[in-house]
Each structure stands twice: as C-alpha cells, then as structure tokens.
Design a binder for these strands. Structure first.
Lengths: 347, 347
DNA sequence: GTGAAAGCGCTAACAT
DNA sequence: ATGTTAGCGCTTTCAC
C-alpha cells in the first residue's frame, strides 16, 4: 500500500508538503514541488486512505441513506425508494462524497451507524416523528428527513404538497363531470399525520367547499402487504351496489394499478365504466401504466433540493433548518372519462 | 464523543482491556471486569469508531456494491438493480457489515473507492470483461461479479442459466403448437458474450434441433434508452406482413411489456393474435404484468449465493473462486396461446 | 489477567 | 515554502 510517506520519500520532501498538494493548499507549496509530487502520486497510483483522514479530521465524506422499516424487508425494492436513492447516489458522488445505505429498524441503530463512521450527513425515508426528534437531539450533523409531517421545529424536511395533490385530483374530477367519488389508500398505521391522510384531506376539502358530501363508506384502506383481498371486496361491493360512484382517487400509482386490474377481472373497465386518478408518477410506473392520469411528484427535483440543502449545511456554516414542500402537478392521461356536461353543470 | 479511553478511565482499567471485551477476547479478561466494562459501555452509549478500527486493522467491514454504467444515469432505477442491491444490503447487514453503493464509469474509479476505504469485498453489476480482469489484478479482496460471461479463470461470478432460459421458452412454444417465432432483445453493445445472446442462443438451439429455420429477419434488437421507435417498426412490419409469426420471445419483461403495449396500440392482442414470453420475473414486473408467461430468475437466491460466497472468502481462508450458474424456470401464465394440435403435430 | 506502548495514515498547528 | 510533531481512536505485541 502506497502512503503519504512513500510519496514524500520519493519526492524528497516532508509528508506535510505532500498532504498540502493533495488537499489543494497550493499557497504553501512551490509550483515546482507541486508538479513533481502530482506526477509521483499519479505514477505510484497513490490513493489517500479515507479512514486515516476521517480519524484525523472527524469527517468522513460519507452520506448515509437511512431506510426505516421492518426487519428483513427489501426496502429498495419499493420503486419510490429505489428511484429516490438511486438519484441521491449520483448527487452525492457528484460532490465528491460517498453513499452508505443503511436499513434500520430502531432509533438505536441509526445513532450507532452515524456515529461509528463519522458520517457527514444523512437522508431519511420513512422515519416516524418520535424517531426523527430523538435522532436530531443525539446527532448534530445535517439530517434531512423526507415526507415527514413532523410538527417539530428546527428540523430539515423535504416533502411534497400532498394536500394539493388531493385538491388537483378532486378539481379535475369535478371538471370532468364527476361528483360521486371514492378514495382508496394504503394504511399507514405508524404515523398520525402523513402523506395518505393529507392527500385524502385535500381531496375532501374540494368537495366540502362545493357542498358535496362523501360518506365514510366511500373510503377504503388497503394493507400494503396484502392488498388483494381488500381490492376484491371493493370490486364486489361496486358490482353489487356502486352507489353511483364514478371514479376513484388512489393514493399511489401501484395501488391504482392493482385496483384497475382487480376491477378488470370483474369486468369493470377503466375509464369506460369507472375513472381512476393515481399518485406519484414514478418513471417505472409510467412505463407500466402509460394511460393513468395521476398526480406527479418530481423525484429528480426532490433529490436536488435534498442534496442542495444537505451540502449547504455541511459545507456552509450556519444554514438554518428548512421545511420544504415541493409542488405537484396533475398529469392528464386517459383514465378519467368525461361525463356529460349536463351532469357537470348540475353543480 | 466517548472513546475507549473514557470507558477505560471510568472502569479503572487500561484501554487494552476494554478493547478486549469489545472484541470478545474473553480469555484475556476477568469475568468481573468484563461485566463491569460492558455496563459502562452501555451506560455511556459508547460507539466504536470504525475509522480508527479500520486504520489499525486494515479492514473496514464495508462491502461495496459497484454499478458500472453511463455518467449521470440513475442506475438503481433499473428494477433488477434495485431488487438485487436491495436484497444484498440486508444480507450484508445481517453479517454485521456496512454497504456502500458506488456508481462508476471507469476502471480507475473502482480501484480508488475500494482502496480508499479498505473495503473488505465488492459485488459488481454490469462490468465488462476487460474491466473485471483488470480490477481483479489490482485489488486482492473478494470480488464477486454477476452475470458476467467472462472467459477469465479465477474469477468469482454468479450468473443464471440464460441459455437454458432460451431453451425453456422455445420448448414451451413448441409444446403450445408454435413453430414460427421471433426474438426481441435489448442491444448490449459493450459485451461480446452476454446474457442477451445467450438467451437467444438457447432459444435457437431448440429450433435447430427440430430442424426449424429462423431467419435473421426474425431477430429484433432494441436500444434500451429509446425502445419506442423500434417497437413501432416491429408492429408495423407485423401488420404489413407477419410472415406467419405466432409469438415473440423477449429478453426482458420490461421490454415484453413495452412490446405488448405497442402491439395493443396497433390492435394486435396478446395472446389472441400473438403470444409472448418474457424474461426475469422480478417482483415488480410480476406486479404489473400478472399475465405474462416468463422465465424466472430467483433474485433472492442469487443474492444468497453471492453473499455466502463473498463472506466465505472474507472470513474463511482460502476459498477458491467459483463460477456459479443458477437455474431458471418457466412460469406459465397466460400470454401464450395454445395452437391447434394439428399444427403442433405437423412437426 | 492486565497494562504500556508502538503504530496504522493522515491533518494541522507550529517552527523554521 | 518546507519540515517537525502531536494527536485522531483503535488493535496488538510484549512485558509483567
């Protein structure tokens, strides 16, 4: 293994000088030496030892990507996580940092991984409010939480405007002449306030302001682990007595797809028989569902915001914590049927 | 930050003793001390410093996951990579190791990342033959390549039986009465021998042994970055003069889906008008294409084999390199139509 | 069973 | 502009 000392010896200088050229402290090195040393470094394929550097300066240039979830789960399999982290890896490397993925099931594991490696910053997916507060108290490096509806102050959070997503869906349904709709969402047992209720909240707010009532019977919650039974129930109920429902707002594209499939198996066609609006518009889901009208969150942009904030806080001095809410937009494709104008103007 | 020294001081022992209880060298520590020290460690929330440890022993307990590809690409977005790495992260952590993801575009970057962190082992996706040989020569830690049809000896590789996958598809088509088929695959420009040609090779071998000819015109290569134009051409050609083709073997499920969609846009239905067999059966694609008959590769098992091999080589002494080829199976669903027995027995 | 001390490769403060 | 040196936190050898 080639070390600083080897380079210094070969160049006939001290290790401090070599260290300075490596770290770009050119003011302290003569041009002549700098050039010669760089050549030797190149020649000998010298690679600085990150552990030694970390030990000396207490900063590793490692960014941790923390996924909180159930023990043994393949969390990257989730297309949102994969796309988000996949993008983040690039952003982190572009800035000369390294990316460590970490699955954790408890608060304790987070603290340990972060401390153990002198991690410079961390990005979280799926962290509950209690945890994020505790982590923030223990660890004093830049921490970015995502999609976390924490009431906690002084915490970095980057989320999307889930409420507006619901509003956009509702308004579009109204515009297309729909007035009797239903909601299908994944259950999120752990969190009080979270993305799903927000999406629903936005959706309902529009109908409320139009004095259109929705009954509890029109909300369906589906377990993420085993959605099929629930979806089948929805289909059966629809066939028995649809109560005049003309469309579904679904909290995730993947779930929308499962719903559409289940309906289709029961002879109910989208959008002919019933309309559907999804949520997310990940690149993979749009590959598979080119016809789904949905609420898009722009993941590239989300990662860009996360990375900017993270590195501003790491490199800059006292950038205050911010809670960013990114915009969403409705992507109109073909899964919502236009109902008669008459019906629409009945409003 | 709490260090070994702090613990030692509080316990009234030397740092060597504390180090020994942490590393489980119980033979060198009295039960009494061990117990007391453990309590203090717990109390003070002591977390060992991985960089210091790495510096001292030259082993970081870091496993690198290397993705070779184009600059700026989101490589984890690919569902295969996401599922594979997602599973690998779990396997690595289960053994007490850390996982670092690294996008690389050149041989040089691989060497640097691996050396810089004293990485204990690395797993590669998408590495060309030239690179894998050079890396292997430079870096003497356990290296596992995947799906690499290298002719190189003494290299760890874990792949699947792509050839057999092609054979299974062909045999199934024959069994279902199909005799005039076409192949659609992604182009893999970089590699001479690789998964796609193998799959095609297996497919063709069956027809050859049945004395059924296939012309070059029946092979279509589609660029992964922009498949649509190509697929449209295939559809047009099919409508103009299908040459009696009754089915497609497609080198990846995702591509199969795109093909089916394109055909459907042109009024050609699967399996009524034409049959399709895909390849991969990732969990996400089966979510989206529940009806596709396909060749399954078992990713969980692949990761298990990779991890076993990796850690046997890391922890064991001289485990020789192996080239493992995992089995594949045909998953029969609904995308291949059964043609008349008459036609079949015409063979 | 326990401790002292050298050393891993690097940075940074301080001398020169 | 360059060199000397004291750590950073840990493991490990060797003496006790």
């Amino acid at each position: 293994m080639v070390t600083l000392k080897d380079i210094a010896d070969e160049a006939g200088v001290s290790i401090a000088t070599v260290s300075n050229v490596i770290n770009g402290n050119l003011s302290k090195v003569s041009n002549d030496n700098a050039k010669r040393i760089r050549a030797i470094i190149e020649n000998r394929h010298y690679v600085p030892n990150s552990s030694a550097r970390t030990l000396a300066v207490k900063s590793s240039h490692i960014i941790a990507g923390i996924l909180m979830g159930a023990q043994g789960a393949n969390m990257l399999k989730d297309p949102y996580c994969a796309e988000f982290f996949g993008e983040l890896v690039g952003a982190v490397q572009d800035r000369g940092y390294y990316f460590m993925v970490r699955y954790v099931t408890s608060y304790d594991e987070v603290i340990k991984s972060l401390r153990s490696w002198n991690v410079d910053g961390a990005v979280f997916i799926g962290t509950s409010e209690v945890y994020s507060r505790k982590i923030q108290e223990e660890i004093h490096i830049p921490l970015i939480f995502t999609d976390s509806y924490t009431t906690q102050q002084n915490i970095n959070n980057v989320g999307i405007d889930d409420f507006k997503g619901g509003v956009l869906a509702a308004e579009y349904f109204l515009k297309m002449g729909h007035r009797n709709l239903s909601f299908v969402g994944y259950t999120y047992p752990l969190m009080e306030k979270s993305v799903v209720p927000e999406r629903l909240g936005g959706f309902l707010s529009v109908f409320k302001s139009h004095n259109i009532e929705m009954s509890d019977k029109q909300f369906f919650y589906v377990p993420e682990s085993a959605p099929d039974d629930c979806l089948n129930n929805i289909a059966s109920q629809l066939m028995e007595d649809n109560g005049g429902i003309t469309g579904f707002f679904v909290s995730a594209d993947k779930l929308a797809f499962a719903l559409i499939r289940t309906l289709s198996n029961n002879g109910i066609k989208v959008p002919q028989d019933i309309s559907v609006i999804g949520f997310d518009d990940l690149s993979i889901t749009s590959d598979f569902m080119p016809g789904l009208t949905t609420i898009r969150q722009n993941i590239s942009r989300k990662v860009q915001i996360v990375a900017d904030l993270l590195f501003r806080q790491i490199e800059g001095d006292n950038v205050p914590p911010v809670n960013t809410m990114l915009d969403v937009e409705l992507i109109e494709r073909g899964s919502v049927k236009f109902l008669s104008k008459k019906r629409k103007e009945n409003t």
